Simulated scan of single mutants.
Amino acid sequence: MGIAERKGRERAEREQRITAAARLIAENEGWSAVTIRRLADEIEYSQPVLYAHFENRDAIVAAVAVEGFGELAAALRQAAHESIDHQGALESVAMAYLAFARAHPALYEAMFTMATGLRFAEADTRPELKDAFAALAAAVGPARTDVEVATETFWAALHGLADLERSGRIRQGARAERVRLVVNCLVGP
């Protein structure tokens, strides 16, 4: 292995340590506790080292969000794979999405509510974001003429449900019923 390869690997490892520390702090104490100073202390690097990897805190949050989109895509694909028909796949994907949001509140917040500069449906959209959208679209896709609009609508419905569940503003016990209603709207009665 050459020097450049080793330095590249070491850089990637430092970035992974930074994002892992940010994620852990956010999960335990919320994103307000994630500061450059705190991260530097946690991973035992100086603040300038962190700034050499990430422009600012928002860039760290964006890196965590990108990881989250990769994890979400994998969870959605796994859920769809375990189903035997289109409606079952949509229901499984919806339940996996809601479970992901509930199980990873700080990560979900980084992905969808914090300032990150990440964009969907743009020429420069990150591959991880495209992959998460594609995982939803694969479940929505069969029998749809406009898969993108249907997928965006499905995603919007799931995001709304996830936020309302996470904030305790809707009944927790009616999740399956709500998911069936959303899915029935996509596939028809």
Rank of each mutant, 00 (worst) to 15 (best):
K7E: 14
E10N: 07
E13T: 12
E13Q: 15
L24S: 13
A26Y: 06
R37W: 07
R38T: 11
A40F: 09
A40G: 11
A40D: 03
D41M: 09
D41C: 10
E44M: 06
S46F: 08
A52Q: 03
A52Y: 15
H53C: 11
F54I: 02
E55W: 12
D58L: 02
A59F: 08
V61W: 06
A65M: 03
V66A: 00
E71F: 08
A73G: 13
L76D: 02
A79K: 02
A80V: 00
H81I: 00
S83T: 01
D85R: 04
V93D: 00
M95F: 07
F100A: 00
A103L: 05
H104V: 03
P105E: 00
A110V: 11
F112S: 03
A115L: 13
A115H: 13
A115D: 15
F120N: 00
F120G: 14
A121W: 15
E122Q: 14
A123P: 07
T125V: 04
P127A: 02
L129D: 01
K130E: 05
F133V: 10
R144Y: 09
R144L: 09
D146Q: 08
E148C: 08
E152M: 13
T153Y: 13
F154L: 04
W155V: 01
W155Y: 08
A156I: 12
A157R: 07
A157N: 05
G160D: 07
L161W: 01
D163M: 14
L164I: 08
R169L: 12
I170A: 05
R171M: 13
R175L: 05
A176H: 07
V179M: 06
V183W: 03
N184I: 03
L186Q: 14
L186D: 04
L186R: 09
L186M: 15
V187I: 14
G188T: 04
G188C: 06
G188P: 07
